[in-house]
Design a protein around this nucleic acid. Structure first.
Length: 725
DNA sequence: CTCTACGAATTTTTT
DNA sequence: ATTCGTAGAG
């Protein structure tokens, strides 16, 4: 068989990676160096050159989108379907394992997946039951605590807490685990934890999978959390199977949600005898853009080290625009895009990247004014919308009456006179009987445990669900959905809503019906799972894209985080200001600043040809006017790669990031002590704080410090006697 | 029970 | 500014 097409188009390191026979291979793939390409070609190579069956291959990604794309590209390259191959997200694969081995995993066959919204509701309910003040301990924080524990592989039983708050959180974690086990509910982190325990406690089962998967490939390895890494280790240690991991420590931007950059940095410790191949040739950006990216990321202390290079020319300089305020910034960007489009380019080649979602509004307004179509990534996704979740809950109840999560959600949606008091009674009965809310509701209605009005309301609800079930027997999924949405009066309820909101919701509900239709025609059912329950799982695990309209030629707006993995000929990075990017939440710790810096690196490397960086001197955020300095990252970009554009020359600014006038820098020195922005310091009177800015050096060095208690102050380094922490 | 009014909080996102 | 959740009145 001719296999040359698999490797002929690759460069040397790529080819080495694709054809490597190492047991443990780490491919350190810089931005734009052909990471996915290597993964796809390696799998194709394994199948065609090494005659592996797709059945023996496991490929893990982080998003469903990446998984779908990978499968598509492999099939496209090989020109054959590879259906026996397991390709999916950690969560998707874990789910598959649990559905197959539900008994060994000690789960009911009908276990339901909780999304984070359901999870939060459950936590709130538990806290209320236990009389824990949710002002003192915010449920969100408890949710974070529980998920963090699970991400680290810790069950409530294994933990001991000493701190008062932590003790309460642990207690809630305990009750939460009980509630989940009783109700057959599994949250996202639990999928991973259970799948890990499934293998850990069933050596036979583990052996089966170890022998099946001869090759394991993991994408975006820098984003793995502890439990995911442990799962991979279980699968590979002491075996002869081979593992390839691909990632880039410089693009690790999810530390805040449990990802451990150490996993990739210390890969050879966890997985001994690893080969490392670096992909440093970049095929995406111009020399100037890469110079800027390299220069920024070099500031990070802890990294495996990589330097991107390109055969492409230097290209245009990076444009820097110092806006007067956020409106001026947005206006400038819109204007530039208008010019770009007038020059005959398409809008979809342009992306506007920002640090926080709150920044999108001003940009949208400016684009709207110029009649430039745009599309926002992120935001609420389809299956996360309230109206969709409500409709899904009706479907879930019709399928499976004991689904408490669904019951809680829609007993009184639309309002049918079942208030808190009534639901409380139902919960109480359910608790006493150890039954589901549904059975409790029937009991309450029949035995008249409540005032007639409430009991009747409950009775009507029970009757409604039963009726929906009877009348949809034998119907196709989409017809079933249509009927349920209509007869539950959800549709009418949303139609009556005032304003445009109701209209959108009605449209979304219609969209749900066609989603059912599509799902029914595409999915292949495994085992004896019903189509409806497969659809329910699908809805939770893949909540879908945020926005439609992807076909119109439009400018792309998104956060820096969601831009990872994408590329655009023209990129605008806006709001590059100290306190916004890096976020003020990150400024005090070096680790967090390094993550923000990686985010900056990700942002810069999204640009293929043109990069424009903007910052505003004054910005209205959360209804307050704030004065921000240019981001420290701006100073880390070589001056010779930038050109400053000034439209509004009349604005006089006391400080700029360039050398004119003052001489600020990110570091200064006095008496042999070096001060750097972001460092934590202590002052004898003002207490602790962190350095915001430096100016001058030697005896004239001045340092601006943000003190925890006293706010911002400029100090002379000579007299301040700052102690570096 | 439902609706309206007022007050607090507000990085980043996937599964 | 805006959204979300809770408290108090209808």
């Amino acid at each position: 068989m001719d296999i040359s097409h698999i490797i002929s188009s690759l460069n040397e390191p790529q080819r080495l990676a694709v054809t490597s026979e190492a047991d443990r291979l780490l491919v350190l793939a810089g931005a734009g160096s052909g990471k996915t390409r290597v993964l796809v070609h390696r799998i194709a190579w394994l199948i065609q050159a090494e005659n592996h069956s797709p059945f023996e291959i496991l490929a893990v990604t982080f998003t469903n989108k990446a998984a779908a794309e990978m499968r598509y590209r492999i099939e496209d390259l090989l020109n054959i379907p590879v259906s026996g191959m397991w390709v999916g997200t950690f969560h998707g694969l874990a789910h598959r394992l649990l559905r197959t081995h539900w008994q060994d995993a000690k789960l009911p066959q009908s276990f339901q997946i909780l999304d984070s919204d359901d999870q939060l509701r459950l936590i709130k309910r538990i806290m209320k039951e236990q009389g824990i003040d949710d002002a003192r301990i915010p449920p969100k924080q408890v949710q974070w605590y529980i998920n963090h524990c699970k991400d680290e592989g810790r069950r409530a039983d294994h933990i001991e807490e000493f701190d008062m708050i932590a003790k309460w959180q642990l207690q809630i974690y305990h009750s939460y685990e009980d509630a989940c086990q009783r109700g057959g509910m599994v949250d996202f982190a639990e999928l991973l934890l259970r799948a890990h325990e499934l293998w850990l406690h069933n050596p036979k089962l583990l052996k089966h999978y170890q022998e099946r998967f001869r090759h394991i490939l993991v994408d975006e390895f820098q984003d793995t959390n502890t439990i995911q890494n442990a799962w991979l280790q279980l699968l590979t240690t002491g075996t002869t199977n081979k593992m390839t991991i691909v990632g880039d420590d410089d693009q690790s931007i999810y530390g805040w949600r449990g990802a451990r950059i150490e996993h990739i940095q210390e890969f050879d410790r966890d997985f001994p005898n690893a080969d490392i191949i670096r992909l440093e040739q970049n095929y995406r950006s111009t020399g100037v853009i890469l110079a800027a990216a390299n220069s920024v990321i070099r500031k990070n202390e802890s990294r495996l080290g990589k330097e991107l290079w390109t055969e492409a020319s230097d290209g245009d300089l990076i444009t820097v625009y110092a806006a007067f305020n956020e409106l001026d910034e947005a206006r400038f960007v819109a204007e530039q895009i208008q010019n770009w489009v007038d020059d005959g380019n398409s809008r979809s080649e342009v992306a506007i990247l920002y640090r926080s979602n709150a920044q999108s509004r001003v940009m949208e307004e400016a684009l709207l004014r110029c009649s430039i179509p745009y599309r926002i990534y992120g935001g609420l996704r389809f299956f996360d919308r309230a109206e969709i979740k409500n409709a899904m809950s009706y479907l879930r109840l019709v399928e499976y009456r004991n689904d408490d999560t669904a019951f809680e959600r829609v007993v009184n949606v639309p309002p049918r006179g079942i208030g808190n008091r009534t639901v409380e009674k139902v919960r109480e009965v359910a608790r006493d009987e150890g039954s589901s809310l549904w059975s409790a509701a029937m009991k309450v209605a029949e035995e008249k445990l409540l005032p007639a009005r409430a009991a009747n309301a409950i009775k009507d609800f029970v009757a409604l669900i039963n009726l929906l079930d009877e009348s949809t027997q034998g119907l196709a999924l989409s017809e079933q959905a249509e009927h349920v949405i209509e007869s539950s009066t959800l549709l009418a309820h949303h139609k009556n809503e005032k304003g445009e909101k109701g209209q959108t919701r009605v449209e979304n509900l219609k969209e749900l019906v066609s989603a059912c239709q599509q799902f029914g025609s595409e999915v292949e059912l495994e085992g004896d799972q019903s189509l409806l329950s497969a659809f329910v799982d699908h809805a939770v695990l893949e909540s879908g894209e945020g926005q439609a309209d992807e076909f119109e030629d439009s400018v792309q707006l998104m956060t820096l985080h969601s831009a990872k993995g994408l590329e655009f000929p023209t990129v605008f990075m806006v709001g590059v200001e100290q306190g916004l990017f890096p976020s003020r939440m990150s400024i005090e710790s070096l680790d967090k600043i390094e993550e923000e810096r990686r985010l900056c690196y990700v942002g810069i490397t999204r640009a293929m040809k043109h990069l424009t960086i903007c910052y505003a001197e004054s910005r209205r955020l959360y209804g307050k006017e704030t004065l921000n300095r240019p981001s420290q990252f701006l100073r880390e970009i070589p001056k010779e790669t930038m050109q400053e554009v000034r439209v509004n020359t009349s604005v006089v600014r006391p400080t700029t990031f360039t050398a004119g006038g003052t001489n600020e820098s990110s570091v200064t020195e006095h008496d042999g002590v070096f001060y750097e922005i972001g460092q934590q310091v202590r002052h004898s009177t003002f207490g602790e704080g962190y350095i915001l800015n430096c100016e001058g050096s030697g005896p004239r060095a001045r340092i601006e410090v943000n003190f925890d208690l006293e706010g911002n102050k400029w100090l002379m380094a000579q007299y301040a006697k700052l102690e570096i922490l």
